[in-house]
Amino acid sequence: MKMFLGLVMRDIRLAMREGGSISTVLGFYLIVVAILPLGLGPDLNLLAKIAPGVLWVAMLLSALLSVDRIFYNDHEDGTLEVIALGAMPLELVAAAKSIAHWITTGIPLALVAPVLGFLLNLQPEAVWVLVVTMLAGTPAVSFLGAVGAALTLGLNRGGLLLSLLILPLYIPVLIFGIATMNAVLVGPGSFVQPFAILCAISLVTIILSPIASAAALRMNLQ
């Protein structure tokens, strides 16, 4: 457990230290959301209507920008080889690194989303749903992303392939994230069901994706 936490803390410290990484993701999110109203024109009703979807899709794209970072640097400088020789199984290594990614990317993105929502005339009552659904959905984004990152490790410029592999897997998260928001904002029906499914998706990926990531890592260590 100490090793696990140590690895999580190390990744968080590295993400902070290497600066750039967190702020680039947030900057990208800001830009994508900010240019959209410029393209659509100043129709406030339209913007309010599409705000949840835009915020979610832009969040997924921004998160995708940073998932290759989960393993790439460690693979590049040889740290991964040494980590693999530690007593901790690679499954837990993958889980620790995904958690660190969620803390350094998922949480900041979820917290910044309502602020960007004002650019899109997001209804005030939607703010808390947005934050809650994003906090529930982003673990899946990080853990699934880790699988793609591990798979594309050995490739030069694996980023594009990574997007092709992983974006389709984000669709369920997107669907149930938006469904929860719509249930609260538009109705009818309860938001409990879609929200429960969203949480379930996150929990399942937290359990399953480290296994897939570890298998991909073993392949890339060869």
Binding site: L7, E18, G78, A87, M88
Partner: peptide, 26 residues
């Protein structure tokens, strides 16, 4: 191996401390 397995963003001390905790963790 051919790669050193050190983190450029960390100081010498931080690099060593991490390996000490991680590899000697048991």
């Amino acid at each position: 191996g051919h790669k050193n397995g050190i983190k450029h963003g960390f100081t010498v001390a931080e690099n060593l401390d991490f390996w000490l905790d991680y590899l000697g963790g048991a």
